[in-house]
Design a protein around this nucleic acid. Structure first.
Lengths: 350, 350
DNA sequence: CTGAAAGCGCTTACAG
DNA sequence: CTGAAAGCGCTTACAG
């Protein structure tokens, strides 16, 4: 009973105003830290606000100001890899700005995407962060048409400057990974790429080629296998590589999932990492440090990318210009325990 | 130029009404599928709506109806394990209801939590899903006081019936895991638990004990190690177990992260899984299938839990009663490749 | 079947 | 420094 009455009742601004003996105009001013209120009045109102735990009604503000204070993050699905790092960064950046984050997963379903697109028109979002690798149902075009600020995260297949994008130095990553292996003494380096119709997959391969060429190592087409960024491809192509007359002493994979596949294939054959085979991945997704042994990989600055993308979006929402329509953050090598000098004894395949 | 004019202009409801030569009342009725509109009128308005891609302004509806159409998911941090599965389920359930999902990460920071709590008062969320293992800054109490519908996901330390919660059959999971190992022929089974001051950690241990007792196997305190649900604990306690005069032939861990630690420790000592040591985890987090070899583990129905929690919350928001204030979904065994019959030869520790 | 009007809770010129 | 009043874009009794 006494309990019941303790339940704080939501007050409105008019009630606060009445209580304080002023107009809502004045209350509004102190809430929004606007000038034009006497110090005493301000203090009195301030106290009342705190006492009652008063917070402005969001819908009313939103309606009046035309800003919802929240942004959308659109992804294909939650996978715990790339997406997770980005979300981290976005959350970080948003914490300061006070915006809310609405997460929407399309599941690669065109109907779902269209639904989301339609809902976007209700003005409940101030801007959107696109984490979709492909151009799906013309989302960027639709957003531009509707004048909704957005920035696309992750490297796109088609390099574009029509809208703001943020990526990382993929080519350099491919180069760095290969270079690392070469510096360890490897000469026969296998690569399991992503789908080669994607620009970003080709960029890794190009970096690989460049490193080999610079080191004066010939490129053996037999060492280049194509995958689809899936664990299963890592397994399958490892066996392809292993079954060759002169197998590689190291394998570089287009992403970490494929590296996990390599691990599984090697484990089956009882080939030790890094003693008998070096493995290097790409992305530096959360679980890479959990692998046995921990994976050496190319780090994509996912958190920073998410943070920067958010920063860009916030500028766009505020009507400010961008320094550049496309920015690339630097990839880097993360040395853990999956690479070593090549074995000196021949591979004894079980 | 012609391009420019193609940019569709946002219309308001009054404009649609004017265009159709009717009142906003009528337009509103067709938009909300309410009766009381002539078939012809309805059709005409319908067409206009579609032609103009008209969508009701969210803020205005929200203000008027007192419902924001979005719910909050509060988590400590995005980790790609437990949280991810839950989010999947929540997204699923929300897709049907049309609610939006706002994700908020507290980072275990009390200030951030209080900030969120305060923001909750602006009525921009219809309800909240709590994915916090501990009672932090009295969040449940605050929510109850504010009359904000919520349901807590995941097993709590203190069993509670004061507010809606959803969990899974932890004890049964501990029992099932141990039973599986026993059925494979293991007699000396090590366990690396979570912090034993947590009810849920003790539940796993109790299940382990029950299975052993039922099988008539004595309980050896030396085989029970306490961890903190971290990978590092898995590594450390594996060595503890391994260094004993009579080491176990199988290890059961309180969660999958600790299992990953076990993998790393065993890999260092060159002990093969499952040939020389069986390992079984708990949770069935996304990456367990990626481990080498894929981890046999106890599955927590994370997706279903997220889905059901959302369903419960939606009922609460709608003012409907719950069938039960606490529900537990069933854990189950997922057999992959990390368990086998115990080795017959002695362990040759490298 | 249809519409005029009030009102949700704020913010913002504008006037004093 | 302070306030009266309009208005953001809808929905909902209520009347016709």
């Amino acid at each position: 009973m006494a309990q019941e009455s303790k339940q704080s009742k939501r007050l409105t601004m008019v009630e606060i105003a009445k209580e304080a003996g002023v107009s809502t105009t004045t209350v509004s001013k102190v809430l929004n830290q606007l000038p034009g209120v006497g110090a005493q009045t301000r203090a009195r109102i301030q106290r009342l606000i705190e006492q009652n735990d008063y917070v402005q009604n969001h819908a009313a503000r939103h309606l009046r100001k035309g800003q919802s204070g929240s942004i959308d993050l659109v992804i294909m699905r939650l996978e715990g890899g790339y997406d997770l790092g980005i979300m981290h960064g976005v959350q970080d950046a948003l914490e300061e700005s006070g915006h809310r984050l609405t997460v929407f997963a399309t599941h690669e379903n065109e109907d779902t995407e269209r639904l989301w697109l339609r809902r976007l028109l209700d003005r409940s979002t101030d801007g959107v962060l696109l984490l979709l690798p492909y151009e799906r149902v013309g989302i960027p075009n639709a957003l531009m048409e509707q004048n909704i600020p957005f920035v696309a995260i992750g490297d796109r297949n088609e390099p574009t400057t029509t809208f703001p994008t943020i990526g990382s130095t993929i080519w350099l990553g491919g180069y760095t990974a290969t270079e690392h292996l070469i510096s360890l003494g490897h000469r026969r380096i296998g690569i399991i790429t992503g789908p080669l119709h994607l620009t970003t997959s080709r960029a890794r391969l190009a970096g690989y080629r460049e490193a080999l060429e610079r080191a004066g190592i010939g490129i053996d087409p037999a060492l280049i296998c194509e995958g689809n960024y899936l664990l299963g491809d890592g397994i399958k192509q490892t066996f392809t590589l292993l079954n060759q007359p002169d197998p590689p002493t190291a394998i570089f994979t287009g992403n970490d999932a494929q590296a996990a596949g390599v691990y599984q294939a090697l484990y089956k054959r009882n080939i030790r990492i890094p003693d008998d085979m070096s493995v290097i991945g790409f992305d530096d997704v959360m679980y890479t440090a959990q692998m046995a042994p921990p994976l050496t990989t190319i780090h994509q600055p996912l958190i920073e990318m998410g943070r920067m993308a958010t920063g860009m979006l916030l500028r766009l929402i505020a009507g400010l210009p961008l320094d550049s329509n496309h920015v690339e953050l630097s990839t880097s090598l993360v040395v853990r325990e999956s690479c070593a000098a090549p074995r000196t004894h021949p591979l004894s395949t079980t």
